[in-house]
Amino acid sequence: MPLASQNERTQDQRTIFQYVQFANGKEVLKLAAPLVVIALAFIQDAAMPAVYPEGYVEARYPAFLMISLVVYLLFAALSVWFKPVRAKVIHFWGLLIVAYGLLMAYNYNTVKTGNLLLPVMPSPDAILNGFFEDVGGAASGATGGLFFHFMGSFSLLLQGVALGFVAGMIYGTLMGYSRFWNYWLQPIIKIIGPVPSTAWMAIAMVLAPSSHTASVFLVSLTTWFPLSVNLSGGIRGVPKAFIERAETMGASPFYIIRHVIYPAVLPNIFTGLFMGLCFSLTALVTAEALGVEAGLGWVINHAQGWNEFDLIFSSVIVFILMAFVLLTILFKVQKHCMKWSKGAIQW
């Protein structure tokens, strides 16, 4: 079908050209403003000598600012022509100005003047270096430093959350669907659920065959609890009419669970997972600090002992990034699964 494909091509071209539209004066100003601030931050850092600690040689902060500058320049240049990119870049203009402005002020007050107390408030450069430092522990000697600890935390978290998810789905379904199971399972969740994972730590460490198993168990516990409660509550709240309708059409109980109840309680499942993931992040740090000799939680605890505050900051930043990415993925999945829904939790 040569005609059809030709039509498609002209349509594609038309849509690409549709997006090309030059930015107006106001938009150019908005695009340029963050560029100026990033450039200023770079100039300030280059122009002022490091006085605290004296003779400190900055390693990565100038490079970081340079990369920021280049990346932003690239996006800003694209934005001048392409409307969709422009809308997104301009959306961040205020946030970028404030972020790099604050960074500049922070840099000024730490390494450049020492106004803020070192080493409790490490300079941006020290925090950046922290990402690459060999911090020891189970990953001692391994190159990559924090990255290895991040991988440790990440895998522990995924294992725990995955286990907690499976357990929570089964537990919540049984509790919500069957009165018999609800009678026996409800008391267990009422007793175990609200106990903070920290309190279980010592017991889990003794009972579990390894500290890793204990940590996975604790993380899964904190996912399991909110998921089970949300899921079982949701199942009991599924309109009876939804189920009866399926019954009159001859659907089996398993078919109803899979195709009526689970879709109906999808919002509850995501709420439970969201809460579980948040709780699990807390449990993760606790578990690592006390048990495993690896992971971001361990690094933070370890660095505190050695007064390495730059490392604490670096670890916290990695932690924030990890949590941010995971929650963003969760909400993207939720949005995809619940296209039919008009209102869901926004992230």
Binding site: A241, R245, V260, S341
Partner: peptide, 8 residues
């Protein structure tokens, strides 16, 4: 009531 499954 129609009570259609909102997800389908």
């Amino acid at each position: 009531q129609a009570n259609l499954y909102p997800w389908l």
